[in-house]
Design a protein around this nucleic acid. Structure first.
Lengths: 161, 161
DNA sequence: AGTGAAACTGAGTGCGG
DNA sequence: CCGCACTCAGTTTCACT
């Protein structure tokens, strides 16, 4: 669970790349590619999960197919000192907020919001604006994606450079 | 592959929710929860993949554990009419750009960038700025995440509302 | 579309190098 | 840390309802 030393070699990196491409690749198949037995691959994957490098396995879904057709980023401006903990509370109460972070620049926080349509998005925005310490919001609607959309939490490749 | 009719019922939605929570949940286990046999669940999953609702299965990875410790959003301003196709080309040539989209507001595009550190990020930024038709960029650095980080491409729950 | 059984493939574990 | 061999669980296909 805890990511302590977290030292991993070239082999681990290749395993991660394989699992990011397809989380259902069998250990034997990965092993065949990188030159290791299925057992060895399994043990390394277990270790990567224990050390917190791999946090889970999820299905990637086309949001529009599920009825989420509107996407936007919302810059949030707070009154005085913005307490990240209270913001986190607010954010958790709105399922349409799929990501939230504190940022540099004029705004205190940046939210990623998914909604059914523009009407639904407006409703979410109104809900956010009722929060006492939120002073102002600026919305940027997403028009189209220029790349197929890689996972927010993971990098395109297993290692920088 | 093609997402045509893509009509799915309550059962499909529950299957999607289960697989988003854990892509390795067995068909039998999902079936036990929603009241279906493993065979029936498998066929529905196969159909959901064919119709493009489920686009894949991936391992979620802690970017910082892989050496990606710097994250930012970059607003891109272009000269005259910004051609999305040419922007898409540019974006594909930089592995540090993990998401790119056209947006409303002053900027023409918004990029999500991951880099090793601030030095690396600066280098990426300089590379982006050499593109002829890119006039200006505004960077917003991510300081901390307020929620564990849900996948960019998928919604928190399987259906709006 | 759903079920249940058969055949097969991959996961998980103990032991030895 | 790795590989081998074994067991068992999960996947996949098929015949049938």
């Amino acid at each position: 669970m805890s990511s302590r030393t977290a030292s991993f070699d070239e082999l681990d990196r290749k395993i991660i790349t394989a699992l990011m491409a397809n989380a259902r690749t069998s250990f034997a198949e990965i092993g065949a590619v990188i030159g290791l037995s299925a057992t060895a691959v399994k043990r390394r994957v277990d270790r990567l999960r224990e050390t917190g490098v791999i946090t889970g396995f999820t299905a990637t879904v086309e949001p529009s197919a599920l009825g989420w057709r509107t996407e936007a980023y919302v810059e949030v401006y707070c009154e005085g000192a913005a307490p990240p903990r209270r913001l986190a509370e607010v954010v958790r109460n709105h399922p349409e907020i799929t990501a939230a972070m504190t940022v540099t620049g004029g705004a205190d926080a940046l939210l990623h919001v998914r909604a059914r349509d523009v009407e639904h998005f407006e409703e979410v925005l109104e809900r956010i604006r009722t929060v006492p310490f939120i002073r102002k919001t600026i919305s940027v609607m997403v028009l189209s994606h220029l790349i197929p959309d890689s996972p927010e939490a993971g990098a395109t490749q297993a290692a920088p450079e």
